[in-house]
Every structure is written in C-alpha cells, then in structure tokens.
Write a protein that binds this DNA or RNA. Sequence first.
DNA 1: TCAATATATTGACACTCATCAATATTGAGA
DNA 2: TCTCAATATTGATGAGTGTCAATATATTGA
Lengths: 119, 119
Amino acid sequence: MSNTLIPCCPPLILQHLSPIDAEQLASMFRVLGDPSRLQLLSLITAQPSGAACVCELIEPLGLSQPTVSHHLKVLFDAGFLTKERRGTWMYYRVVPQTLQALYSTLQPPAVGAEAVVIR
Amino acid sequence: MSNTLIPCCPPLILQHLSPIDAEQLASMFRVLGDPSRLQLLSLITAQPSGAACVCELIEPLGLSQPTVSHHLKVLFDAGFLTKERRGTWMYYRVVPQTLQALYSTLQPPAVGAEAVVIR
DNA sequence: TCAATATATTGACACTCATCAATATTGAGA
DNA sequence: TCTCAATATTGATGAGTGTCAATATATTGA
C-alpha cells in the first residue's frame, strides 16, 4: 500500500561486473551520452507512425544532414534503431527492447526480479 | 501468461525531450559511459558495508590512485556517490536513487506505469 | 611541530568524437 | 541513360576527456 518500492524494480545494483561486461555496458551508455542522439530517439518515438526519415529530423535538431546521419548510424550500430528503405527515403524506428535490456543491466538478476513480479 | 512484456515496465519512451533536458540527461549517461566508473559502482555496491575507501578500489581497477580519485569525483559530482571522511580515509557509497531517477527518465510518465502495475 | 599515510589536484599528453564541407552513393522518374 | 533528390561516406578540425607523474592537501600520531 504505502510501499514506495515499485514491485518489479528493486533497488539498482550493478553486480559482478567483469571488465569486459563493463566495457560493453559503458559503450551503450556512451551512445546515450549525447544530447542529439537522445533527441533523435525522442523525435522518432514521437512520430505517430513510430518511424521517421532523415529529412524530418534535420530541422528540429538544428544540425547538418551528415551529422544527423552520423548519429543515426551510431544509434543503429548500437541496436537502438532499425532502418528501412522506402524509395529514396530511409525510415528509422526505435527498438524498445534495446533500451529495456540496457536498464535491466542496472537491476539485480532477472530471477529475483521475476520472483518479485510473480509473487 | 505467454506475454513477454514485464507488467510494470511498458516500452521505453523518451518523451518531449527539450534540448536542455537532453543535455542534462546525456551528461548523466556520459558519466556511466566509462567502464572504470561502472566497475567502481559495482565494486562499492559489492562491499558488505556498502561503502569503500579509495585504497580498496585502486588494485581491483588496475589504475593509478589519481585516476581512481578522478573517476570517484566525476561520480560524486553527478550524484551517483556520497563521500564521508573517516580519519585519513574517504568512504564512498552508491546513491541508488540517482540510478533509479536516471532510468525512470527512460520510461513513460509514472502515472501510466502505475496503472499497469495496479491492474 | 614533524613524519607518515591517504586522498585530491595540477599539468601534460594521447586519443576519442561531434561537427561540418565536400563528395559519393542510391533510387525514382523522365 | 540522365537528372534530381535523399542519404551515406570521407576528411579535417577543434573540443573534450581518460590517464599518469608530480605535487599539494589533509589527517593522524609521536
């Protein structure tokens, strides 16, 4: 009732982080560590269709076309976006599972989380 | 049953992200975008007492003392750690609320999340 | 006050990366 | 095939940053 803890989301803990895991995880956070890329994720998500072409993203970001393409490539390579051709346009779409997986790494093992959800 | 969605965690959406919010959020992710800093958070959390002094963190990280102090300062300045003097030692402790707040920004408004949890 | 220990700061260097201009590539239509 | 529009790539540049050696600061104990 008055419990302020979200049932499925126990306190965040980074457990047994090997150097390799740390580098992998850090590389994902590094991708999100740029305001333009966060705005891209936000803008694409905000589209009614859930997808956006490059030309729709240039003006709201206030960056050059090559720079926007660069950021989209970084997001794509990291698995945050998918892309699909439609004629000359390339439509990008957010992959929610990637963000989901990312912050799952900040939580205790899924077993414990599952248990809390189920019981 | 066969629903793969976690009840309390609807698809991640970054909504209405202003340039200022984007920069603030990105700066937090940037702090986590370094493997040494992730390892520091992991190591400190793993301590039975929940706290660790600098001298305990140097050897497992394999970095120089000034570099470890530097990373601790970055984490402290961003609100991921607290510090407390005990004699000549300085003990650092993880602030779970900061990590919690960080990934809350990746989710839809709490209202929607609450609703999903309750039903 | 002095010495020893723990931590923080400074300065320098190498490396990464965000950005743009210029150019290349791709696809559609004539 | 040619042209045009949309996107991607290349190369260059400047800003940021992770790292260390050297040094400074702070605390304890004699």
